[in-house]
Design a protein around this nucleic acid. Structure first.
Lengths: 168, 168
DNA sequence: TAAAACTTTCAGAAAATATTGAAAATACAA
DNA sequence: TTGTATTTTCAATATTTTCTGAAAGTTTTA
């Protein structure tokens, strides 16, 4: 497997996995291409390499910029914009974790608490059972959310230390 | 907000969040309906309450059964199949975590290792840089995967203990 | 200021995913 | 067995998501 084939395989695999991660395939592939590339890359080169349209390339790049896992890079004497990936996996894994927590955990919390309150006084068996179920989900979710916050705020060595404790 | 309204809200919210979690809306709503219900429910009641087709109800139920987060329940003297949710959130959270790890982490591992090996001997700058990036992703992913395994294998009290350590 | 180089937007097309509903298969009762 | 109740399958349809490409917008150069 040549270096180019390896890079190709990485980009393909990363893209395919994106869908499992709730990340659009093009977005994942653009990140992979930038990760695999030593030097900054322009929109045109991305379009050409991944065979995607200008619109798609632009939107994928913007999303990655918003996530904070790629950066714009100015090249002197060139009007085009170039892009580089954040290569410190720790940094971008934390950013993605934060985003996922905000998307997947936070929105359910307020609803759960609202329902928990609304059903607190219910005297029927049915009501008490439901309150119990909601309360358990709420408690569990809150705990997981709090731990996620702690982990996400950690720096690299703190994170490794915390996770080491889990393993032992 | 009446009890019925609370249940309704829970089912809607759970369903809406499903998409963020990579879970089909109907599947999430069926689980929510079973969680919210004190007693076993038949396919017909699910169809009626959620206003979904028989085919959809059947496929959603099967998926939840496969995940192991709902169960079939036989009611004496009734030919219909009834279903109940696993109400121990701890149990089904672990099952879902395991499934997600298998879907999201495991598949990338072998590819990363293969690419890591294939690029190990590369002498070019480009090749060495790429090998470095892949190695870091591989190492990080392996570590997270190992921790996930440990957590998933834990029982409730072990899990809480381990997570408590993280917070402190 | 105008033209050229480049980036962004967005309506419509294409692709992917979810849902329906009716037919086929299965399970049960008489 | 045979008929009836119930479940499962799957081709057709609907919905959602993604992608394209050209037009509009912006920045830079001359």
């Amino acid at each position: 497997m040549s270096l180019q084939e390896s890079k190709q395989k990485f980009i393909e695999t990363w893209g395919a996995l994106g869908s499992e991660w709730g990340v659009n395939k093009s977005v994942a592939q653009v990140q992979a291409l930038l990760l695999a590339s030593g030097n900054p890359i322009s929109t045109d080169e991305i379009m050409e390499t991944l065979k995607i349209s200008r619109g798609n390339a632009n939107m994928s790049l913007r999303q990655l910029l918003d996530y904070g896992i790629i950066y714009k890079k100015v090249i002197a004497g060139d009007r085009k914009e170039y892009f580089v990936a954040e290569k410190d996996i720790f940094k971008w894994a934390m950013k993605i974790a934060l985003m996922r927590k905000q998307r997947e955990i936070d929105p359910i919390m307020s609803t759960l608490q609202e329902i928990r309150e609304a059903t607190r006084k219910d005297k029927t068996e049915e009501g008490k059972d439901f309150h119990q179920v909601i309360s358990e989900i709420d408690t569990f979710t809150s705990q997981i959310g709090a731990i996620a916050d702690k982990l996400i705020q950690s720096n690299r060595s703190e994170l490794l230390l915390k996770l080491l404790k889990v393993i032992m």
